[in-house]
Design a protein around this nucleic acid. Structure first.
Length: 832
RNA sequence: GCCGGGGUGGCGAAACUGGCUAGACGCAAGGGACUUAAAAUCCCUCGGGAGCAAUCCCAUCCGGGUUCGAUUCCCGGCCCCGGCACCA
């Protein structure tokens, strides 16, 4: 009976033990199917969180932060009566996993399942309301079968194409990288200097969607920071393409200095440039072609050929880092001259690497007077600098000591009939004028490039294409999907520019789906961002094996109701997902153009004021904290340390406060009295708290919601008072989204058999919540001097009288009121 | 350089659309009650300065401004974090 290891007394038997409570409810939820979503349920609400890459290190506290924030939002929606789908899966393909597998000498097909199992264990502990029946793993053939299907859909619609292109090549990862994966000229993953290579690559025509991707940003409910990042990335510029005829060295020989015809004659070489400043054309004193520009070859004169060739060769060999980071201007004169269509002047044609082949037309008209880069270049090579725009304090002859790039305040000068026209108008007028003369065309350019999806690697979904000598490029028929990634021991990338799959005969050789003759498979795999560009479409349809997503279910559950994730994906994942969804919309397969009507970016968790990193050794291991404090405490603490959308500073020292709060909640329910009546003041505070928390949760103001509950707890237990059951019961429901396990346990303790999450959100009783008397703030000369207690609907006169009758306040009234500002329900300001 | 987001006590942070004597809530710190003692719990103090005290003055990065009233709005500047960057 009295074994030595038995708990000593009843007090301890009933103490809050998170380990036991959490284990009990983890099991109970599975047993009861509490988190299994009925897809036919009323008021569907699709709560989406960004699925993690299952790293070998296990769940990062940042993952837990994001998931908890999502989970609270999802659980709150459920308490509001929605049928909530809150799925989670694994984004396990990609270079990251493959590199790690190579480093460890473990095959990814062995490594990934191990990591996934560890993640699953950690995620289960975290108390997420995830319906695990609808999970996805991007490396599962049952999933990537449909990733390949997505590729084929794009191919079918003319949105996937192959071209040879100068691409970013990472010599360490030995693969092509998307522009988005290159940071300041180095690989975002391994920080190796990226090189240029010309390879045959598969691209998606995301640029066809640029205008829609931009326009829709105005209609979706997203964090501003994310929308701005996308706008910048899309980079829309309005301007004009201008045509410059190049003087033919033979027919135009000797005509230097002669006014040449301004007609653009057909047959001669014409250089088309893109500019956002057509108004400055009279100041265009030379042209620049990108070194890769095909016209360089044609226009270069024999005496310049040697220098030009050498320059082009150097540019070709140069890596992208030096080209983008080193901004010293270099270039070579081609020997050619072109005609400025505005004034007929002959201007030299140069080639220089500060002009990029990939943007606009790969050629520019240089206006050194009004462009910083052109100014720098012109100074270095002693090219003429002409002023054609004057600011408010300048005139046509004010010397230019630096370029003048202000396009808001300037007016044109030295521009013939356009002199005096403000820049904004001149842009349009000059374009119109040149258009009439056949030398211009208004165009809109985007910074966005097509999406290169080819990867010369192993760990990804094989691109479902077969090359046949007779039939050409043949897509793998849908019935033959998936093209299974073979389990091969030799998956190491090499420097050949061809993926490792090319070395595996059994994979490489395949019959042509059209004619049956021997043919070759595409050996590139697709970018991991394709896996994650459509995963949210898959979750609701997961058991289905015959379609990627069921039409009815998709119509019912898409678009996603709320998506919360990291802003590091503002331009990569979120743009690609919007693009793919838009394509699916055009194909009639999804109900809306935009997949995520509401997106919120959460902040970042730092630790003790510094970013967490392995090298700093300050990484928080969620397991250790959940062991010590319990998952409910860790969850609630993470949400308490700062505004969810801004992040917070994780400090070990502070966790105890949250745990104390849960301890007190536990004790309050355990000891609650059932006799007598609840206290009116406490009930007032309770209903005010319900109102506050109910308003804070949908706004993701989790930290203030928790503070409000703590405040209520202080009222509830002030001076060791024993709370009444009615005073604590609704609080259990308020706490539930944050601390689901303890909430369920306490709910049961209060005599309920069903889950607290099916009990509904407590209603605010406005009657009880109302303050009868109003504490009116009194200011004298704008300075707050005190308060008077007055009836709610007090008039200004009555309020003033109350102040005059208050000895403490009346002494500040040193004269007759000159002016009285009365804000009903708020304050009374008396100016004397 | 451009675009976002910030700058409030020893610390993490509150303050709805300009208004409840700025600092809720929590941590840390100090004091007290209970206890043989400790833990736990509960109570009190906790931006700076002056004063025995009631009270008064100063204080939300800095300098101006608008207003009866500014952490909040406007102008100028400094600093920190994140993103983009030779994009014509």
């Amino acid at each position: 009976m009295t074994a030595p290891d038995m708990p000593a007394g009843p007090e301890e038997v009933l103490a809050y033990d998170p380990t036991a409570v959490e284990a009990k409810w983890r099991a109970r939820w599975v047993e009861r199917g509490t988190n299994a979503t009925d897809l036919q349920g009323e008021r569907p609400y699709y709560q989406l969180m960004m699925f993690p890459y299952p790293s070998a290190e296990g769940l990062h506290i940042g993952n837990l932060y994001a998931f908890t924030g999502n989970d609270i939002h999802g659980r709150f929606q459920r308490l509001q009566g929605h049928t909530v789908l809150e799925p989670l899966g694994y984004d396990a393909f990609g270079i990251h996993s493959e590199n790690f597998a190579l480093k460890m000498g473990v095959h990814p097909m062995e490594l990934i399942p191990r990591n996934v199992a560890n993640f699953r264990r950690q995620l289960d502990r975290a108390g997420l309301m995830v319906d695990w029946r609808r999970s996805v793993d991007t490396t599962d053939p049952a999933y990537y079968k449909w990733t390949q299907w997505v590729f084929l859909k794009l191919y079918e619609r003319g949105l996937a194409y192959k071209k040879q292109a100068a691409v970013n090549w990472c010599p360490s990862c030995k693969t092509v990288l998307a522009n988005e994966q290159v940071e300041n000229g180095v690989c975002e993953r391994c920080k190796t200097t990226v090189e240029q290579r010309a390879l045959e690559q598969w691209f998606f025509r995301i640029t066809n969607y640029a205008e829609r991707l931009l326009k829709n940003l105005d209609t979706i409910d997203w964090s501003d920071s994310t929308r701005t990042a996308q706008r910048n990335w899309l980079g829309r510029s309005e301007g004009a393409e201008l045509r410059f005829r190049v003087l033919d060295p033979l027919t135009d020989a000797g005509s230097a200095g002669v006014q040449v015809s301004q007609e653009i004659t057909s047959g001669s070489t014409v250089i088309t440039v893109f500019t956002t400043r057509p108004d400055t054309i009279f100041g265009a004193t030379y042209l620049v072609l990108a070194p890769e520009h095909p016209a360089v070859e044609r226009v270069t004169t024999p005496d310049q050929r040697g220098a030009v060739e050498a320059y082009r060769e150097a540019a070709r060999r140069q890596d992208i880092v030096s080209r983008q980071v080193n901004k010293d201007k270099t270039g070579v004169f081609t020997g050619a001259y072109a005609v400025n269509p505005a004034n007929g002047e002959m201007i030299p044609v140069w080639t220089a690497d500060y002009v990029l082949m990939g943007y606009g037309t790969g050629a520019i008209m240089a206006v050194p007077g009004h462009d910083e880069r052109d100014f720098e270049f012109a100074q270095k090579f002693d090219l003429p600098i002409v002023r054609v725009v004057a600011g408010p304090d300048d005139d046509a002859n004010t010397p230019l000591t630096a370029c003048y790039a202000d396009d808001a305040a300037g007016r044109l000068v030295n521009s013939e009939q356009f002199n005096g026209v403000p820049v904004a108008d001149a842009k349009r007028q000059v374009t119109e004028w040149l258009t009439l003369r056949g030398a211009a065309k208004p165009v809109t350019t985007f910074r966005l490039r097509d999406w290169c999806v080819s990867r010369q690697r192993y760990w990804g979904p094989p691109i479902p294409i077969i090359y046949c000598d007779a039939c050409g490029t043949v897509p793998v028929p849908e019935k033959d999907l998936p093209v299974v990634l073979p389990n091969v021991p030799d998956y190491k990338p090499d420097d050949s520019g061809v993926g490792p799959l090319a070395r595996h005969e059994a994979f490489f050789h395949a019959p042509c789906p059209t004619c049956g003759k021997p043919a070759r498979r595409e050996t590139d795999v697709s970018d991991t961002f394709l896996d994650s560009a459509w995963y949210f479409l898959r979750y609701p349809s997961v058991p289905r094996d015959d379609v990627p997503f069921d039409a009815d279910i998709t119509k019912r559950w898409l678009p996603v109701s709320a998506y919360i994730g990291g802003n590091e994906h503002a331009v990569l994942h979120l743009l690609y997902a919007r693009f793919i969804n838009m394509v699916m919309f055009d194909a009639g397969l999804v109900p809306t153009e935009e997949p995520f009507h509401k997106f919120r970016a959460h902040g970042m968790i730092i630790r003790d004021g510094a970013k967490m990193s392995k090298s700093r050794g300050n990484v928080v291991n969620p397991d250790a904290y959940m062991d010590q404090w319990g998952a409910d405490t860790v969850r609630t603490y993470l949400m308490f340390i700062g505004p969810f959308e801004e992040g917070g500073d994780f400090r070990d020292q502070s966790i105890s406060g949250v745990r104390r709060f849960l301890d007190r909640l536990w004790a309050s329910v355990r000891d609650a009295r059932r006799d007598g009546a609840p206290d009116a003041d406490v009930m007032k505070k309770l209903h005010q708290t319900i109102r506050k928390v109910g308003a804070d949760l949908p706004a993701l103001s989790y930290n203030t919601a928790i503070a409000a509950m703590m405040e209520y707890m202080n009222v509830l237990r002030r001076g060791e008072r024993v709370p009444h059951e009615f005073e604590v019961k609704p609080l259990v429901a308020l706490v539930a989204p944050f601390a689901p396990h303890i909430a369920e346990e306490l709910w049961e303790m209060l005599g309920h058999r069903d889950s607290v999450f099916d009990a509904g959100w407590p209603a605010v009783n406005e009657e009880l919540a109302r303050d009868d008397a109003l504490e009116l703030v009194v200011q004298i000369n704008g300075k707050t001097r005190g308060k008077v207690s007055v009836p709610r609907d007090v008039t200004q006169e009555a309020a003033l009288a109350a102040v005059q009758g208050d000895a403490g306040l009346a002494k500040f009234l040193t004269g007759a009121p000159k002016k009285v500002i009365y804000v009903p329900g708020r304050l009374l300001n008396i100016v004397v």
